[in-house]
Design a protein around this nucleic acid. Sequence first.
DNA 1: GTCAAAGTTCGATGCGTGTCATACTTCGAC
DNA 2: GTCGAAGTATGACACGCATCGAACTTTGAC
Lengths: 115, 115
Amino acid sequence: MAAPRRTGQGRIPPHPDIRTIGLQQVLEALVDPVRRRIIGELYAAGEDLACGTIDLPVSKSTATHHFHVLREAGLIRQYYVGTSRMNALRLEEVDEAFPGLLRALVGRPDTARDA
Amino acid sequence: MAAPRRTGQGRIPPHPDIRTIGLQQVLEALVDPVRRRIIGELYAAGEDLACGTIDLPVSKSTATHHFHVLREAGLIRQYYVGTSRMNALRLEEVDEAFPGLLRALVGRPDTARDA
DNA sequence: GTCAAAGTTCGATGCGTGTCATACTTCGAC
DNA sequence: GTCGAAGTATGACACGCATCGAACTTTGAC
């Protein structure tokens, strides 16, 4: 049988149930500074952002990789608008599964001395 | 000139000022499950523990490596009692520099479903 | 239709780091 | 003194992962 067409909204990738995600996986996702920057920008923006509107110091293919890791870790939700892939922070869900984690990591100075 | 003797309490390694430690370094220390287990046991025990009293699924030399990483990240303080190296969680200091971080990571089920 | 924009997929590569075994050091007990 | 206990230091190794370029796909604009 032919492979599924995967066109239109069929391109939307699957999203895991956060309750099945382990702390280990979430931490591995958040330890990378590029990915933490993505989460930080989504958190600060307070709205969904297209991949291209978040400027990252890596190539496009690497950026795709990072968004993939964040989605697999249950931290973001992705959907298409035209050719743009939008990213939504799964804030409430993550906060329920791992209370206090995002707040402890996002929107802070890197060191206490920077405060 | 001769190398310093490094005997007695001179064996005590230097400890960094937590205010100079970056979130990146702390996260890299805490992303390893063995190291998170060490922190978790120290947190649960509520008292200083010798390296040997924390049973870890790795060799002694690997354990030494992990304690070293935790110390360099400002998360534990180490001192000698006889031949035993004691480990103290730098709880208040870490909590002041990175509020909520330890509580979000320690003493929790791995997934929300385990709760 | 054509074309460009926005991402994705696929390999390949290089560096980091967690792991171990071995040899060594320091201390306490005897 | 000798011996064992508790860690440390060093060197080697293997695996993972972040990175990139190039080719490809899908969509919207014209």
